[in-house]
């Protein structure tokens, strides 16, 4: 399997292997070893503040968590079991309904057992992100042992 075959497989199986992703409606734009990009079209159910028309920050966090996990598996380049250790998200600007949430995540440091990911979320312009996230992940399969493709937690 070439790296491109693996990215294509991740892209095809993502929505069906992760039920919550299907329910949210996350769509993958780009999947490769450098980054994953996705968009999440707005839904009325995503509101956190009806009066002020703001999207709930939990939606943004779920998007970041999910795309970071996928970016890590794509970066490793083969089926791997992973677990999120921690995640921190800064909400830089309000997210407004009626516009997509766009997310880009990348792994910027990978060791035998631990990976460090960062992600940004924007609506109109990548230069004005609505949120910025950082997370640490663990490879749960032992070093040298291939996990099955089941790690998209």
């Amino acid at each position: 399997m070439t790296p491109q075959d693996f990215y294509d497989m991740l892209r095809r199986t993502y929505a069906t292997s992760v039920p919550h992703v299907g329910e949210l409606g996350i769509e993958l734009i780009r999947v490769d070893g450098r980054a994953v990009e996705a968009r999440l079209p707005s839904k009325p159910e995503f509101l956190g503040d009806v009066e002020h028309q703001l999207i709930h920050t939990g939606v943004v966090t779920a998007l970041i968590d999910s795309i970071c996990g996928l970016a890590l598996i794509a970066h490793i380049g083969k089926p791997t079991r992973i677990a999120t250790l921690d995640l921190r998200v800064d909400y830089l600007r309000p997210s407004r309904p009626g516009k997509d949430l766009n997310c880009r995540a990348e792994c910027y440091r990978l060791t035998e057992q631990i990976a460090f990911l960062r992600a940004e979320v924007w609506q109109n312009d990548p230069a004005t992100p609505v949120a910025s996230g950082m997370g640490a992940f663990m490879r749960t399969a032992r070093p040298g042992e291939d996990g099955r493709l089941s790690g998209l937690i």
């Binding site: 919550h20 939990g58 970041i64 968590d65």
Partner: peptide, 27 residues
């Protein structure tokens, strides 16, 4: 509910769901 699953093989609740549940709980 089944739609909260993030890993159909285990099965486990999606980590993002746990996070957004906790954010919602705080709110």
């Amino acid at each position: 509910k089944p739609s909260l699953i993030g890993n159909a093989a285990l099965p486990a609740i999606h980590g993002g769901v746990v996070a957004s549940f906790m954010e919602s709980a705080a709110l």
